[in-house]
Write a protein that binds this DNA or RNA. Structure first.
Length: 260
DNA sequence: TTAGGGTTAACT
DNA sequence: AGTTAACCCTAA
């Protein structure tokens, strides 16, 4: 009755992020009691922090709301074990590579909803900006921030591109998901996505390198051909010069066809 | 206390 | 309609 819905302010969100940075995700009570954050988060319970963090992680993680993976397809007759993620990943790097060029950080004019791929430098800048520490931040802290940031931003953007071609991420392998205790919060999401990201980036990098190498080869080849042509032209010129100086008359056609 | 599933208010 | 985010409940 009294509380319609208390939406989180950006200040509260910020405090939560810094709290997670300091104490780690999961120490909600500690974060909430921390004198650094308690003024901002006074109206939030530890559970609220947990839920909000979950929302942040999932929404930034792009891949659907948490109740998205239910009903693991009554069909799937086992014969075709659905395309394995690794295989499909190999097709992803193209997209990733295209997204990599250092041009887009403030590019998207219409929506701030799509997290544009971030380079590490800009991520560091963002970390510094969000940490807002007057004397700068510890490198470890920045790294820590980026780690966290990655888990719900960067990883997501790459994962989105990487997994987009797949209609179904099929995170549930069999139905052993219930009993498996390996599925722990971020733990379930992050490693897979990080692995995907790492793989994608590695392949993309290799591809970029081979592309570069290929370009270099073409360039060398081109220059070589130029040298050849230049040399033959030189020969032709000297021969022409010699003949002309001896009084011989040559027509353009003859020269063009080397008929002399 | 926390993680995770579930419910509901407030959106598009 | 469907989705999202805040809130609630409960087992461990």
């Amino acid at each position: 009755m009294g509380a319609p819905k208390q939406k989180w302010t950006s200040e509260e969100e910020e405090a939560l992020r810094r709290g997670v940075l300091k104490h780690g995700a999961g120490k909600w009570r500690t974060i909430q009691k921390d004198p650094e954050f308690s003024p901002v988060l006074s109206s939030r319970s530890n559970i609220d922090l947990k839920d909000k963090w979950r929302n942040l992680s999932f929404s930034a993680s792009g891949l659907g709301s948490r109740d998205k993976l239910r009903v693991p397809r009554p069909k799937a007759p086992s014969s075709s074990p659905s395309p394995s993620p690794q295989l499909l990943l190999l097709s992803a790097p193209n997209n990733v590579a295209e997204a990599s060029p250092p041009e887009d950080c403030e590019k998207s004019p219409q929506d701030d909803k799509t997290p544009s791929p971030k380079l590490y430098s800009s991520m560091i800048l963002e970390a510094l900006d969000e940490l807002k520490e007057p004397n700068g931040s510890e490198v470890a802290t920045i790294c820590n921030f980026i780690e966290i940031d990655k888990s719900y931003k960067l990883t997501d953007s790459y994962a989105k591109r990487a997994l987009a071609p797949m209609k179904d991420p099929s995170l549930k392998k069999k139905d052993s998901a219930k009993s498996s205790k390996a599925a722990k919060g971020l733990g379930q999401l992050s490693p897979a996505l990080d692995a995907a990201e790492a793989a994608a980036m590695k392949v993309a990098d290799a591809e970029a390198k081979s592309h570069l190498a290929n370009e270099h080869m073409m360039e060398v080849e081109r220059i070589g051909k130029m040298a050849e042509e230049t040399e033959s032209l030189l020969e032709l010129a000297s021969e022409l010069y010699e003949r002309c100086s001896r009084g011989e008359a040559l027509t353009i056609l003859q020269v063009a066809h080397r008929e002399f």
